[in-house]
Design a protein around this nucleic acid. Sequence first.
RNA 1: GGCCCGUUCGUCCAGCGGUUAGGACGCCAGGUUUUCAUCCUGGAAACAGGGGUUCGAUUCCCCUACGGGCUGCCA
Length: 505
Amino acid sequence: MSTVRVRFAPSPTGPLHIGGVRTALYNYLFAKKNNGTFILRIEDTDQTRYVPGAEEYIIESLTWFGLLPQEGPGFGGEFWPYRQSERKSIYKEYADRLLADGHAYYAFDTPEELETMRQTDQTFKYDSNSRTRLKNSLSLPADKVAELLAAGEHIAVRLKIPANETIAFDDEIRGHVAFNSRELDDKVILKGDGMPTYHLANIVDDHLMQITHVIRGEEWLSSTPHHVFMYRCFGWTAPKFAHLPLILKPTGQGKLSKRDGAKFGFPVFPISWDSDHEEDNFTGFREDGYLPDAVLNFLAMLGWSPGNDQELFNIEELSEAFSIEKIVKAGARFDIDKAKWFNQQYLIHSDNLKLAYLIQNQAIDANYHVSIEYLADVCGQMKERVHKADEIISNARFFFEAPHVYDDETIKKKYKKENGSHIKMIGQKLIDLSENDALKIEQVIKGYIADQLLKMGEIMPIMRIGICGTMQGPDLIQTVSIIGASEAGTRLIKSIEIFDKLVTD
RNA sequence: GGCCCGUUCGUCCAGCGGUUAGGACGCCAGGUUUUCAUCCUGGAAACAGGGGUUCGAUUCCCCUACGGGCUGCCA
């Protein structure tokens, strides 16, 4: 048994889609599980769709997730180059071989002519049947072919699919899949510009790079018979295929697309993508406050399960438990609520200081200049109350500044004017305390409430509003201990003035 | 339209001939708490339909319906 070699082969036509990340993840997990090699190959054979920066984006995304390839552009490996545009001559050589063996032919039809055919006939297909009527080296007389070849325009090489035979393969996920070759079109394998199409480049590279398992999206299932046919023509052993179910829109029809992020209000890309065109700017999971491991865990469960009820896995556990047989066959709808839940779980189990560093820039941007230790304390209190890292700051501004607005509703409902002086007194005592030990603070507050025979339920909520402005927040004693007894006391005294006015009005 | 793939709670998964069809997210109710959240307890919620095969089908086969993909000198 040869060692497992798998590849993730994205096309640098834009930012890497979250579905692509899952494909990369499954390849990575499969390699890890089998002690194999995970390879990155850049499929940039379409010059017209090439987007500068896309390759860097792909690598930065994989890096963020920790899904680093052992081979690939910039990662070493003995099967270089790993960028298809740099392998052009290799593909030409193999296309020639197919041509020489009679498994491919030259086609001279222009894209416009083919477009017209498709317009007039919805079912048009360039295949074993129609090719006899089209402009190619099979239908045209030899001298005419030679002439067109010499002219050198619009020369494409097409695969000569046999007329009527069964082409089948065993998919690792779907089992036996069979096609009749009459349903298959004569795919272009070498384009007019001399570049190969995906189909040729893909199988040549997979063979040359000794790929053992092709794990890719289901959109490739229909062209797999073409690939299998080419392996046969070359006399090569085909790798094993595993076609992954697609990720579908949360609601409505079709697969998740890049525009769905804006439409549904959540990211569909790992990290942000900035383009010259406003409508092509996308925010990423990273910038939106998600942790990479949480996203990975969520993605892993979208189309795969370990066969039991466990859902929380770190990457090591994931690769240990992973198996292709457990991949689900049906497409999965993207559920952002589940993703948020995973993220919250990871947030809760994250180290406070790590979280603090993660959100440090956000704090600075908001003009909150506090120590990293202070931020860590805030994270400790807030992490179980949020779903995304950025909410730690946006939901708890009272840790950084006195509240500007107060929850009127609760004040009107719970504030009794006779308690005002007591709360002011507590405020003064906190100022006098001049230290921030939680135990001492608790003694001051709860001690006073007990001494004066007051009710916790009447005093604490009002104090909370006075200090935080809102009813939502961590334990009050802990909060005071973090922002400081003196600051809290000052806020209390000031807020009572406002509350008194609010209640009399 | 044609070909291929699929179909268990709203969603993601478990189930691989005999189960009160299980878990998670979300939702609802209750408990804990100074609030929110976490956490705990409970609840509503599904085998697309029809034929077979079988003593017995959610599980196997066929048909229909529905969903998805492909049908480019894009990947």
